[in-house]
Amino acid sequence: MTQLSEAPPRTRAQISERTLRKDPWWRTPAVVAALLTIWVLYATVRVFTGHWYWVPAYHYLTPFYSPCVSGECVPGSSSLGQWIPALPPVIPYAFVSLPFVLGFRLSCYYYRGAYYKAFWRAPTACAVREPHASYSGETRLPLILHNLHRFFFYVVVLISILNTWDMVQAFRGKDGSFGIGLGSLIMLVNVVLLWGYTLSCHSCRHITGGRLKNFSSHPVRYWIWTKISRLNQRHMQLAWTTLGTLMLTDLYIMLVASGAFSDPRIFN
């Protein structure tokens, strides 16, 4: 009679629905999945095409083929010289830069979050139960390799310098002196936005100033950090617009190089 009854062990609310959300939570991940798939398909086709990447008259080189360092590169397109003889077509011409550019985007904090939701469904949307039986996040191989993002950042800064060089070359007319065409302007916009994306990187934010404990004793780095932090708030937008401008730049150069479209010249 006097015995106290044990309280039953507490458990989480047993609710069988995967989610009770009524808003269209599946929409954003579906759009992200569709856009990323389209982009990857386009880029894959393009890097293996092997032609229409260089407009000799105006020195337009698509970013997907820069740097072109092997023997099959058409004359003029190899700004860094040709280091090796022609390669079999299964190897993209820009094999030097593409792995780093790809690694940079794959390990980007924004894209990671986006594709974990869109493709891996971990989770598809917030407060929507994910379908996996277990979860270890980025604690193990291969996902722990995302910690190398900073290494890709270092290399991509060099690649951005190369893209800038390619863009400067594109401001030339047929006679080799200064000139501006629609293509030069497209390449300029692309390069400016690529720098925006690269410098707004979270690793960049960390390296330039975020790693400090004490801002007041490093005023210059603190100033840089505040600027990078402002840019960093736009990182997602820059991630998407640069996918767009990369594709547009490549498409434009492909059309001009193939003769399907002639580059309107603004000056020379």
Binding site: Y109, R112, Y116, K117, C126, E138, L143, R150, H202
Partner: peptide, 30 residues
């Protein structure tokens, strides 16, 4: 390392703290 920066914490925070961008990612970088 379990955090996969999917930002749901940030999405629901009523104080609008940028938990993922300003705390978790900087911590991952450190």
């Amino acid at each position: 390392g379990y955090c996969n920066i999917t930002k749901c914490c940030t999405e629901v925070c009523p104080e609008h703290i940028k938990i993922t961008d300003n705390a978790l990612i900087p911590m991952k970088e450190r």
